[in-house]
Design a protein around this nucleic acid. Structure first.
Lengths: 215, 215
DNA sequence: GTCTATAGTATGATAGAC
DNA sequence: GTCTATCATACTATAGAC
């Protein structure tokens, strides 16, 4: 395996590896789409295989079990968002304010969430319903991402920019809940993504009541 | 059937009707709990029957199909919240402000949500994954409740109390998303329900940033 | 790398006894 | 009203041909 991925030994080996990776990706993509809309247990390997253009038995060349597919789909649902968020924050000037920093994180989170909707919505929808063994393996990356948000809020609290009458954990759960649920109702045909981000960010920052102050 | 429910004709008929209704309720309760934690498709009628203390075949005396159970569980998930919210608003003085009105609605929504967690969480978790036929039957009450919130926000907007840079539909989706997700993380052991409601209401009204004005 | 065929198990639903 | 027994179907996973 190491020789195959590192240094193909004969002509054509690259193309073969590509074909393999491509089928694998197709299976993951269709699995995410089906898990999202049907649930994990209700989705059969035959459906996934059909959608990916292969037969059910062939899936076992790429994955050891249905649960292997599940864990990869769940992990990817967090990973695509986390990667995007980190890149977005790293692009900020080092002296960016908390408000700028959090704005960037919210926008990047929403971007990843909505542009990989099958993976992220599958994650949100089915996490509560999967076998404990799968939950346990997936929980690592989930915890990492939650910690990232907690550190952000902790530093804002220390700087006096976050409301102090609520714990940072509750703020994180409230904000991530509100953001994540948008994948269930966001409609790109009802306005631009930028305007959508502005509306959500405003409500997260300043609430839903009519402005009584100018920010 | 009408004679049985209206005027029992012999002694013991009431007790029989009670026993029937009680088994039926037990099935619904256990179904809600299992749908919540396993999903609809993954939950078998044998599991529901076991939990309710009867055999799988006996379920068909009370329900025509698995989908009948599903629709009742989903409807109840909205109904218990809706009833509580309406009663709470009707108890307000007729000249209550929008802020008081919305405070009452949020508290009642959270109360119903968290005190009937199996029905409400099952509803939230599995609605996106059920057969279209079930979705269609359940959608009526779902739409009614959404309309209730929309009317609340419309009147607040007309009175200049709701922020006007976002449509009432988006505000409703944002708020209900944030509120509903609390059933996935609320922990009654980490503080009183009243304090929890205060924190959530504050964030919905005024956002998460440090107070810059006194309300 | 994908196929066909199939083993072993579990499912929703029904029929009929009590 | 609840039971037992069973039908027809579908599932995950495996074995071996190509």
């Amino acid at each position: 395996m190491a020789t195959r991925t590192r240094a193909p030994r004969r002509p054509g080996a690259d193309a073969q590896a590509d074909a393999r990776a491509e089928t694998r990706e197709r299976v993951l993509l269709e699995a995410a789409r089906l898990f999202r809309h049907r649930g994990y247990a209700a989705t059969t390997l035959r459906e996934i295989a059909d959608a990916a253009g292969i037969k059910a038995g062939s899936i076992y060349y790429h994955f050891a079990s249905k649960e292997e597919i599940l864990v990869e789909v769940l992990d990817k649902g967090i990973q695509v968002i986390y990667d995007h968020v980190r890149a977005s924050v790293e692009a900020l000037p080092p002296d960016a304010s908390f408000r700028d920093r959090l704005s960037a994180v919210i926008e990047a989170h929403l971007w990843g969430l909505l542009h990989h909707g099958d993976f992220t919505s599958a994650n949100i929808r089915i996490y509560g319903q999967i076998p404990d063994s799968a939950k346990k393996r997936h929980r690592v990356i989930r915890r990492d991402y939650a910690d990232y948000w907690d550190r952000l809020f902790e530093s804002a609290l220390a700087a006096g920019q976050l409301r102090s009458d609520t714990s940072t954990a509750v703020v994180r759960l409230y904000v991530l809940g509100a953001l994540n649920w948008t994948v269930e109702w966001y409609n790109p045909q009802r306005g631009s993504f930028a305007e959508f981000v502005r509306q959500i960010t405003t409500m997260v920052f300043d609430g839903i009541l009519a402005d009584r102050t100018a920010h």
